[in-house]
């Protein structure tokens, strides 16, 4: 680790101004669970850290008047776990409860995970899968970005230097009738080898009105399996259909021609399995 100055602003505009003033040498720090490790290995070398921990606006969650779930970017996994979200929003707590270890969950934040944009982490795939969007603030002004556009295809985010992610918005409860996040990791504290998210809405006849399938860890950014999602709509899915959808996702996301190494062939198999599991669970939820 290199020496650095630690600044602890108490308001968002103050944080924005500090980041602006210190330019490229400065980095926001939330839970520090990714950033400090990178600094320890000297991969990241900021000379100024601007802590987001003291910004009350960035912590906690609430429902907007329109029913969107707004989560402050600096809300910790631990806070998400104990939040009493309604309906399918509960999946966010379940995902937060089943990643990393207790110290990481106590310190790590949802915004930090999104900004870190590690493809193997859970929150990026979840946010894209559930159609979330994020609000940001910077010296240049505020903007809202759909999660699907937050992640650059070559890795990382599209955020500019000094841009702070302030809020993560999940759509209203009406957006989905069932959602599920599934992942496979070797040890319980490992990041995912592959993760899969399914969010779907059923119509009155229990047919799929629309559906999203998103895969994590198979590329530098979460991958939306659009064809597979479209294939689901308008149908009453049977177990056989679900198996076919799993296979379709494999072809769409990791076709044989791209799965050359043993690791990628393995990931390809997992895509099929996890998509099946995610659809099955999302459907169960939607039907019950």
């Amino acid at each position: 680790m290199k020496a650095f100055t630690f600044l602890a602003p108490e308001a968002l505009d103050e944080a924005v101004a500090l980041l602006d003033r210190h330019g490229r040498d400065a980095r926001p720090i939330a839970g520090g669970q990714s950033l400090l490790l990178a600094m320890k290995d000297r991969i990241a070398r900021p000379s100024v850290l601007v802590s987001l921990a003291g910004l009350a606006d960035l912590r906690g969650w609430r429902y907007s008047p329109s029913g969107e779930l707004e989560i402050g970017a600096a809300t910790t996994y631990a806070a998400l776990i104990s939040a009493q979200f309604g309906g399918w929003h509960g999946e966010i707590s379940a995902v937060a409860a089943d990643l990393a270890d207790r110290p990481v969950r106590t310190m790590g934040t949802i915004g930090g995970a999104l900004c870190q944009a590690d493809p193997r982490f859970d929150m990026p795939a979840l946010a894209v899968g559930l159609g979330a969007s994020v609000d940001t603030a910077s010296a240049g002004g505020a903007r809202t970005i759909p999660a699907a556009e937050l992640f650059a295809a070559s890795g990382g985010t599209v955020l500019g230097p000094g841009e702070i992610l302030t809020t993560v918005r999940f759509p209203t409860l009406g957006a989905f009738s069932g959602v599920a996040f599934e992942k496979f990791r070797q040890r319980v504290f490992d990041a995912a080898v592959v993760s899969a998210v399914c969010g779907l809405r059923l119509d009155a006849d229990a047919r799929v009105a629309d559906a999203r399938i998103v895969l994590g860890a198979v590329a530098q950014a979460p991958v939306i399996a659009q064809r597979t999602g479209r294939q689901m709509t308008g149908r009453t899915l049977t177990e056989h259909d679900i198996a076919e959808l799993g296979a379709a996702a494999m072809e769409e996301v990791l076709p044989v021609s791209q799965a050359m190494s043993s690791f990628h062939r393995y990931q390809r198999e997992l895509v099929g399995v996890l998509v099946r599991r995610a659809i099955t669970r999302a459907l169960d939820q939607a039907r019950s």
């Binding site: 080898v193 043993s262 690791f263 393995y266």
Partner: peptide
């Protein structure tokens, strides 16, 4: 015998 090797062996 990693999960990767096990699954590829089964396939």
């Amino acid at each position: 015998i990693t999960p990767e090797r096990m699954l590829l062996a089964l396939k």
